[in-house]
Write a protein that binds this DNA or RNA. Structure first.
Lengths: 240, 240
DNA sequence: CGGTCGCATGTAGCATGCTACCTGTCAAGG
DNA sequence: CCTTGACAGGTAGCATGCTACATGCGACCG
């Protein structure tokens, strides 16, 4: 018996639809929209639309403004920095635990996702690529033994996904990103926690740099020293 | 001009009410309830009740069962371990950053919260004590420079708060808990990141032990080695 | 011509109607 | 006595009605 459950609810579908609309630029950040019109456009009632927006509001993607509408929030560099700081703090140690506890099933599953990522990179299919990327990280995090940690990181990805796909020179980056997962997988295969941690740290840091660069190019405001420190100093300052 | 905004919504009030009801034992974990009846009991319509429950469901406090009702979820040791593992990963480094960046305003604010905690411990006022405890941690985390990190931790506390207040021999523990904050404050005052981190680590670990002990006493199932490892090995294995 | 106020418009938030469906019960049939 | 199946009760999920209110615009007044 399979669980269906997740895909069924109209609310869930709207959440997905709004995410994609923001990604595709159909809904622009900073702009004001109405749940009324959105419901009409989707040919459903206002209730599931509202509930979906409430969920997205809690995730920080939109904000309700009483009697005016809802606003798609802008992502500023500060936010990206914060999200990736969190990801470093959480994913790096989790990868270490995963490498320590790894079994062959995990290694095989990770390999499969990585292969899939490469295939999607060839095809230039951003969306599918991201799905497999995400799945790769999820597998790793779950293997770390903390399901809630995996859930938190998954939520964090939602907030950054809002940015992505500047659709420019993307396919080359896809290959680079896929390549960065290889050392992680190798370390897990070798059951080497330290190597897994540093490989993942490099990967996440690089991803952050790409996104931050993309945003600072647009906005023209460079990163503050304090922001840079969050990304450069993921763990306890370690050195005394 | 002051922002009011937050406290107004009926939905928010219901969220608060349900949290308190779970705490007070009015709503029992594992039991099945209906949004219908809850709305009737609160003398409001079903919509805000439903929206509040949806928010709590996302936070992992309740779960909807289609056409049956919603269930208040049981907290098992595994979950507590996961939450505190996360708190160690997030709060400890944040405390280090806070100590590094601390200014006198922060120190004064922390001192104030700690004093308030002691006063509430004297009065045996659990609820208020927890508010100041929470505020102490929030101040520290925000000083770490990552607002989102602070928000995530705040959410984590929500899920554990569901447990608390076994109301037994509590007042003595309140004093102990307050005392554990003293070294943290001292380290921040001295701008000593390492000391702040180890003090906070000790505090969080101790809190986790108390809660886990409370649960294992009830359930009789001791912690698995894997679970213990999550709490004992907060950061990157460090050595090496 | 500049400033104020009333009003039309549109929205979030709340209340309520409606439907499909899950579950427990109980009676009929083996 | 056990199995089966119709049925009543109750729920989540969705649709829709209703209200207070925030805003922009234009008329009216100074």
């Amino acid at each position: 018996m399979r669980e269906i459950q997740g895909a069924s609810s109209l609310t869930d579908q709207v959440v997905q639809a709004v995410r994609e609309a923001v990604l595709s630029g159909e809904l622009k950040a900073g702009e004001l929209y109405s749940a009324y019109q959105l419901a009409e456009r989707l040919k459903i009632s206002r209730t599931p639309v509202r509930e979906a927006l409430l969920r997205l509001a809690e995730a920080g993607m939109v904000r309700f403004e009483r009697n005016r509408g809802f606003r798609v929030l802008k992502r500023d560099p500060q936010e990206i920095v914060e999200v990736f700081h969190l990801r470093l703090l959480l994913e790096v140690p989790a990868a270490g635990l995963a490498a320590r506890n790894a079994d062959d099933t995990l290694v095989a599953a990770l390999r499969q996702e990585l292969d899939a990522m490469r295939a999607m990179a060839d095809g230039g299919d951003d969306a599918r690529f991201m799905r497999h990327d995400r799945q790769f990280h999820q597998l790793l995090l779950l293997a770390g033994g903390n399901a809630r940690l995996a859930a938190v990181v998954d939520g964090l990805r939602d907030t950054t996904t809002t940015l992505g796909t500047s659709t420019v020179g993307r396919s080359r980056n896809l290959w680079e990103i896929a390549a960065e997962h290889e050392p992680v997988l190798a370390a897990v295969t070798a059951r080497d926690p330290d190597a897994a941690m540093s490989a993942l740290r490099a990967h996440i840091t690089h991803t952050a740099d790409l996104l931050v660069g993309q945003l600072t190019d647009e906005a023209g405001t460079p990163l503050s020293p304090a922001q840079a420190e969050l990304l450069g100093r993921p763990g306890p300052p370690a050195g005394r």
